[in-house]
Design a protein around this nucleic acid. Sequence first.
DNA 1: CTGAAAGCGCTTACAG
DNA 2: CTGAAAGCGCTTACAG
Lengths: 338, 338
Amino acid sequence: MTQGRVSLQDVATEASVTSSVVSRVLNGDSTVRVRPETRARILRAAEKLNYRPHPGARALASAQTRTVTLLIPDLTNPVYARIARGAMKVASREGYAVLISEDTATEALPYRQLADPGRTDGLLIASYRPGHPLLDRAVIGPLPHVFVNRLHPGSGRNVTVDFEAAGREALLRLAEAGHRHVAHIAGPAELPNSALQARAFAQAGVQAGVSVELIPTSLSEEGGAVATRALVEAESTVTAIYVGNYFQALGVLDALERAQWKVPDRVSVISFDDDRTASFLRPPLSTIAMAHDEQGEQAMVALLHQIRGGASQDVLVPTPPRFIDRGSVGPPRSAESK
Amino acid sequence: MTQGRVSLQDVATEASVTSSVVSRVLNGDSTVRVRPETRARILRAAEKLNYRPHPGARALASAQTRTVTLLIPDLTNPVYARIARGAMKVASREGYAVLISEDTATEALPYRQLADPGRTDGLLIASYRPGHPLLDRAVIGPLPHVFVNRLHPGSGRNVTVDFEAAGREALLRLAEAGHRHVAHIAGPAELPNSALQARAFAQAGVQAGVSVELIPTSLSEEGGAVATRALVEAESTVTAIYVGNYFQALGVLDALERAQWKVPDRVSVISFDDDRTASFLRPPLSTIAMAHDEQGEQAMVALLHQIRGGASQDVLVPTPPRFIDRGSVGPPRSAESK
DNA sequence: CTGAAAGCGCTTACAG
DNA sequence: CTGAAAGCGCTTACAG
């Protein structure tokens, strides 16, 4: 067996050509003119010796790492896991290795190090937030990068699902079911994602003659619960609630149950973002499912495009939000709406 | 500003020393003897120029990549997300970058490529299963590697939580509550994790005078549901069910509800593995929580140990399984047990 | 102890 | 068109 590493030179020797030719043939350099039999000989030699180019040597010589870096805020959030999955799928297909870093896990390895050219060809940033260290242009420098899911307004590098379409879809479904007075338990107003969604929901309400009450709160179980308790204590007359994310929705359902507000009899509930557990909640939760895998894929496509010299631009994932009916939306209770 | 890359040589020039010295000082080579002021000058120069070593050049010259690779079967499974998180935390602390690959996303980049020395110093394999391509020693070769969560019996490289302790804990809790006839809806018998757990559960049953019925099935919602329906149709007299994983548990609760077997009145339920959504199920689900973050940390510690020349050995995460009581375990219904 | 130099394995102008 | 050679940026025996 071969001991140690097989180099380009080894392949060249085996194929009785120079390493220059081997490099060009193996890299599909179209300018190289070589007889088919020579080409075949080279390929056979590489195969036989099980040749694998040394990534570091390649990076050193070509100033390309064929590696991209994923910056994820929270891997245990299935939304980000799916984004990462989509991104990895495309990267893998295109021959790129994927470095990953989670905000909560990054201690000693600072961003400046992750963003190092020589280490990576580009950054897929899912963890952007206003004031985030990565906002710092000085850190990212000229490195190709894309913001995914979390919008960075004005960057011209955003890849996102269609938050506005989601908001409209939710309102339409509720309006269709007959609701005329609804609440939207939303994310913080500073979050562009939440703001876009809330605005679209409200505007669609105006058009459909549905009055909309906006309740911004944190994107967590507790946030959802707090907002819900406020509605309950105020003896709100809303007959439906659209919830800004799945974690909030968990808190909402819980708080409604404690208040003995039956879903969907007393109040209908619909959540942004689907989840594997949604049909196992009680009641099973109707959701607006977003194409997060695809979002990750598109983001990686956009990033590779930049890496290959293309211009950056905002991308809206075309797949429309999909309403999944599991029964938590029903008609408004007719009487008693105060 | 500096244009282009800052090299070792640039730092050396700035500090009026040779690049050899800079390299040794920056790498903490203890054999180098240099005046404190020179050392300070070098450090200052590196800082001033914002020097960052080129990882590829380093890998080429030293045959070390300072990169490790995570092989994950399914990122959207929170268990693996937490393992990845723990692993990333330790890697980051130790100055290692982390490559990641998910089984489902890996198309073109084959394992042989991921496992390439020159690309990575070691493999953290969470996706082992019998017959897995990575079993192939020829692929992994002499590369340091560790199996995490999914046991590879006999490898001497397993880092896992204590499945047996979990099984025992579950049985003890049920016995404590008074149950004398219980079922264990388990994973497939071929999976060492499931087998260990099931055996420990059964053995603890023998010792506690509790009769145990084992029902192996797939580790999915559907698997849990199918097994549960079988119990129901057989009009089983078990008064409690211990479930092998969280996905199964979702199916179990659902099937029990459809069969109108109240939890915990008709039957108590306890699940291996906690989840963020567990307290939002109805009824809230009592679980045996495992320290998966820590499992990931320990696995990375073990891997880095190997990379640094240490021997490999099996590691059992010391943190004991923790029972989380959410009310789905109660006393057995007294009468009617046929 | 420390500096000069070889060498890691590639890519790619450049000269023929 | 193709080969010889320089050079990417490091580390580390090795010689002084």
